[in-house]
Design a protein around this nucleic acid. Structure first.
Lengths: 224, 224
DNA sequence: GGGAATCTTGACGTCTCCTTGACGCCGCGC
DNA sequence: GCGCGGCGTCAAGGAGACGTCAAGATTCCC
């Protein structure tokens, strides 16, 4: 269920969208005035905003601008105006997308998915936790017990391959191909050396690893 | 200057867009085939992709999907097809936006701005503290132990790029692009010189830095 | 036009990282 | 009991990246 705030004063459109979006996994909350919308957006309970430009009190573009002052929530603007200037103004005010009425519902849904897809990883970043380890793939950062751990490029690439699929086995061949290149497929020496280095840096007792596990003869896995 | 990869096989459109986008602050690199695009996107040197759907070798949607496997770079799809299905397919494959040809240039520019605004790291707090350092990004002001530290323009720009995402690694390429411009991507000399200058001004023991850290062969990070 | 600040460039010593080989341990099959 | 293969560990060497310094070159401001 995705919480969506609809800012729209036309009761017919509100009804249509509430039903249709509701059928596609959205919980729709509707407000009719821009001032209400700004206040409610501040509470941060909505994951995405759908803003109509034709509001009774405030211009929709000002709503977008006001919300953007305090929030990075995705905003889609709906409008009957197909004018170039309105689009540019809305997008530059901070809107993420602009859909012209009459709009196609499957397109609107696709654009909502796209906006949410972008917004979500940013909020719940691609961070993997395991015991006292924090691995932030985006920031290329590894912490152990709150302290930054320095990894060499190869060490990081190896860890990244394993962490990408937590808990599941990655074959030696696959690791070698990803980290060193396809022609290194039989250099299992490298794996032994670098896995050992990672364990020394990341495990409490490198000789009895809890996170970087060996499947003898097959490959390695990262266990959270 | 923003580095943009244009994936388009029609030479006329390439020429038009290169000129027009170039006049608006984009450095346009064009490739005509999808396979080229996928390979080049992997290098991570482009800040945004503009993909045409009608390519000679691979379907543009597959290009989008392939790039999305390895990258979160913003992708705008250009297409002559106005069909609902094509839009939905492209957006669900990972495109950030879909613009129908013939498109209005000012709208395309606005959509590019919107996509880039989202992609750029959510501006960290305007004031960042680390030890006895106080860095006010908005005021362009740096204090160390309560005393104002003077930075040259380049020194400031470099520090700003690193402080914008505290704790996360910034690649050499990215720093050079942001501070000196895309064509300086291999002038790592500059980095060494300016990082050293910053350390001399900001670190207690420049030879054992605590905040401006090196990841040899990869980049630098600001550690609070 | 002159001086100061800033940027660019090159050289050199130092350090990190990747690679490689040797050795010991363990489990398994003979 | 013994040999064998796979794994973990260690350390050395060389290539390349980095830190440092200082001398031009350039820009900017007065």
């Amino acid at each position: 269920m995705t919480q969506l705030l609809l800012v729209e004063d036309d009761a017919t459109i509100v009804r249509t969208l509430t039903v249709t979006l509701g059928a596609h996994g959205y919980r729709v909350e509707a407000v009719g005035a821009g001032s209400e919308a700004i206040e409610r957006a501040r509470s941060g309970q909505d994951e995405v905003l759908l803003v109509d430009l034709g509001l009774p009190d405030i211009d929709g573009i000002d709503v977008v601008r006001a919300v953007r002052m305090t929030s990075t929530v995705p905003i889609l603007v709906l409008s009957a105006r197909d004018g170039r200037d309105a689009k540019v103004a809305a997008l530059d005010a901070g809107a993420d997308d602009y859909v012209t009425k009459p709009f196609d519902m499957s397109e609107l849904l696709a654009r909502l998915r796209a906006a949410l897809r972008r917004a979500r990883p940013a909020a719940a970043a691609s961070v993997v936790r395991a015991g006292d380890l924090v691995i932030d793939r985006q920031a290329r950062r590894v912490e152990r017990a709150g302290r930054l751990v320095h990894l060499s490029p190869t060490e990081w690439n190896l860890l990244d391959v394993l962490v990408r699929t937590p808990g599941s086995l990655v074959t030696q061949r696959e690791i070698l191909r990803e980290v060193w290149g396809p022609q290194y497929f039989d250099e299992t020496n490298y794996l032994r050396v670098y896995v050992a280095q990672l364990r020394r840096k990341l495990e409490d007792r490198p000789s009895q690893p809890r996170h970087l596990l060996t499947d003898p003869g097959v490959g390695y896995r990262f266990e959270p």
